[in-house]
Design a protein around this nucleic acid. Structure first.
Length: 283
DNA sequence: GAGGTTGTTTAGAA
DNA sequence: CTTCTAAACAACCT
């Protein structure tokens, strides 16, 4: 799940669950998710501290306290849940921050990322120094500057966290589909109009998905078609193409977005254009 | 067993 | 320097 909208959802979970509450205990069920900190040091640094208002940058959740700051990344399968002490520990509950009758649990099936601890805001700045601006904070002019001169394919650029922080594989596909730009187009070769469309699609996709705290899998979203064996474009019904960009499965509509040169890893279907009444409207 | 998965990092190549 | 690829991490799923 975790891309920018999901992490924003986790930020709200933390906020409503434990903000302003004092941490009594930190239970580490699996030290495998702690990065550069021992269970003992994490607990000692946090006990007696109070959670402040959490922030987010890209896919990072920044959980400040009145002492040190906890940095959480959720990899592909992580989440944050608000529990009571009575809730039995799930198999993938790795760490619990216990605050009275509430406890915040870091839950993660695979353990691709994890939890870090830094002393202060300067530590946060240092830890996240490689990240570009948060995708929600980028206006059209800055977006153009970020894209400018990049010879990589546009999807690779959108997913590059050092350029723009927060977009992952699903969002990148969704945005390019809405903007009607093929994912393998070279970023530097995009017309001003196309860059503008991508930026607007990004704003819209982020706004709509942040509101619900995850990427909706509704019928008007490309993401909803991902798992079907032979997916069709939600907009025009054309059979979608499947390829691989930066090692990630990429879905696009050859009719709406253009063929694209990349046939790498494609399903090999000649893709007869059905081309029914184009455009069942925006959204 | 084979191959897939929303992420990041590293090594190596072009 | 930029960009791409593959592999690794770990634990599921089909």
């Amino acid at each position: 799940m975790p891309e920018l909208p999901d992490v924003e959802g986790f930020r709200r979970v933390l906020d409503s669950c434990v903000r302003g509450r004092s941490i009594e205990r930190v239970e580490v069920a699996d030290p495998g998710v702690l990065r550069e900190v021992t269970p003992w040091r994490l607990e000692r640094a946090l006990v007696g501290r109070c959670f402040a208002e959490p922030r987010r940058h890209g896919k990072w959740l920044i959980a400040a306290t009145d002492g040190p700051v906890v940095l959480l990344h959720f990899g592909m399968t992580g989440s944050l849940v608000c529990c009571s002490p009575a809730d039995p520990l799930g198999r993938h509950d790795r760490v619990a921050f216990v605050a009275g009758e509430r406890q915040l649990r870091y839950r993660d099936q695979r353990k691709l990322q994890g939890i870090r601890l830094v002393a202060d805001q300067d530590g946060v700045r240092r830890a996240l120094s490689e990240l570009g601006p948060d995708a929600l904070d980028v206006g059209p002019a800055e977006f153009d500057e970020l894209i400018d001169g990049r010879r990589a394919r546009i999807k690779a650029v959108l997913m590059d966290q050092s350029v723009l922080a927060g977009l992952g594989n699903l969002l990148a596909d969704e945005i390019l589909w809405r903007a009607r730009v093929a994912p393998d187009r070279q970023a530097a070769g995009l017309a001003a109009e196309e860059r503008r469309r991508i930026h607007r699609a990004m704003r819209r996709v982020l706004r709509d998905s942040v509101r619900v705290g995850h990427i909706p899998a509704g019928s008007t979203w490309l993401t909803g078609r991902r798992d079907s064996p032979d997916p069709a474009c939600p907009r025009c019904g054309t059979r979608l193409r499947r390829g691989r960009i930066t090692g990630r499965t990429t879905l696009w509509c050859p009719h709406c977005q253009g063929e694209g040169q990349a046939l790498s890893g494609a399903a090999g279907v000649p893709a007869v254009e059905q081309d029914p009444s184009d455009d069942p409207g925006r959204e």
